[in-house]
Simulated scan of single mutants.
Amino acid sequence: MSERSAHTDTGAAGPYGSPYHVPVLWKAVVEGLVTDPAGCYVDATIGGGGHAAALLDALAPEGRVIGIDRDPEALEAVRRRLSDAIEAGRLQLVQGNFADLEAILDRLGVAQIDGLLLDLGVSSHQLDEALRGFSFQAEGPLDMRMDPTSPGPTAAQLLERWSEYELAEVLRRYGEEPRARKLARAICRARPIRTTAELAEVVRREVSPKEATKTLARVFQALRIAVNDELQALERALEAATRRVRPGGRLVVLSYHSLEDRRVKRFLRYGNLKGEPVRDFYGRLIAPWRPLTRRAIRPSDDEVAANPRARSARLRIAERVAETENA
């Protein structure tokens, strides 16, 4: 399962971890993102505020961070944790979807930013809170909405609504599940399914005990991505970054599964979501981003040992290219 946060042991979490959230690869994030200490940066998935706290420490007093999150519980945790920065005007919080990045910046009167951080996935708090319905390891309502106050459908409602074919497509496309058709058939036969435990039991009956955990992770990932429209939100945010990050500014993305990472890698290389190279008269590649990480940065063995949920993280960094550099 894709995770954005980590272990709740603050001793192992480093200086910016908290019981709510442990920021993955925080040093690499800050070093990769900050080019102007007095600049304006957006943490578009602020979570428990770990990366934002590290950014604020790295910035000059006049430096500014805008923190966005869908989850009102995450924003409340940040308000408690970083109240001084909020009162000083260095941190501004917005409840919203990073898919709407441009509308949010317009509302704040911000034309361009110096850097954008996208830390994708789901937080430890969301995974550990059974009532949120993200985890198959605890029983709770099958919800999975990043914003539980939103009117959007829950995972349980979508399972009730989808045909067997539609469910199989979701499991195949978003979970890369090889038994998508078989599992979709079993889930549809078992409807209505209202809790995480009920869904987990249906899946376990269809696979061997050795395969159960990985299969459940793929099924729950697929449903979560569908409920929250995560890949489409990522694509919209990447396109917005090209228009809003200033030349010389940075884009930093932490992804946790191949569906996200492939999109990010392709976009940073070619500047579009189709992965189609655009070349000038001389055959030189024209792209709005210059990747600064030839390969994705991975957590160290020590970080993974202290923070097991960081093991799947992939960090990519790119710099916005001035139009004259492509001329």
Score class of each variant (00 low, 15 high):
D57G: 09
R70G: 01
E139F: 02
S83L: 15
G96I: 07
D36I: 04
T149R: 07
I113C: 09
L118I: 04
E129R: 11
V110C: 03
D147Y: 07
G47L: 05
F136K: 03
A85P: 01
T45R: 01
G67K: 03
S83W: 14
P72D: 06
E76F: 03
T35F: 09
D119G: 14
G89M: 14
L116T: 13
V29N: 06
V42W: 09
Q126A: 01
L127F: 10
G67H: 02
S123R: 01
R145V: 03
E87D: 15
A103E: 15
D69W: 07
D36H: 13
D36S: 13
G133L: 07
T35K: 09
Q112C: 10
G39A: 05
T149M: 11
L158W: 14
A28C: 05
D114W: 05
C40N: 00
D100G: 14
Q137N: 02
G39Y: 03
Y41L: 09
R80K: 13
S83P: 00
V30I: 10
M144A: 04
A130T: 04
A99Q: 09
V110K: 01
R79Q: 12
I113P: 01
G32I: 08
E129A: 13
R90F: 10
S124N: 03
G67V: 12
D57F: 13
E31Q: 11
A53R: 08
E73C: 01
R64A: 04
V29S: 01
A99G: 15
L120H: 02
A44M: 13
R79N: 11
G109T: 12
D143F: 05
Y41I: 00
V78T: 09
M146Q: 02
F136N: 02
I104S: 00
R70H: 06
A88W: 00
D106V: 07
D84H: 12
L101F: 07
S150E: 11
S150F: 15
T149N: 08
I68Q: 00
L117K: 04
D36M: 03
E102M: 13
T35C: 14
V30K: 01
E76G: 04
A44E: 05
L55N: 10
P151M: 06
Q137S: 11
V122D: 00
M144C: 10
Q92P: 05
L101Y: 01
R79P: 08
G133A: 07
L118M: 07
V29Y: 04
L142E: 03
Q92F: 06
A58N: 11
R145N: 07
V94A: 10
L55Q: 05
R70F: 14
V110W: 08
E76S: 05
G67T: 05
E73H: 04
D106F: 06
P148A: 09
W26D: 06
D147L: 06
A103I: 14
R64S: 09
L158C: 12
A111K: 10
L159M: 07
D143P: 00
R132H: 02
W26P: 13
R107F: 14
D43H: 05
A103S: 15
A103D: 08
D143K: 00
A54S: 14
P72A: 08
A58M: 06
P61Y: 08
A138G: 04
E102F: 02
T35D: 12
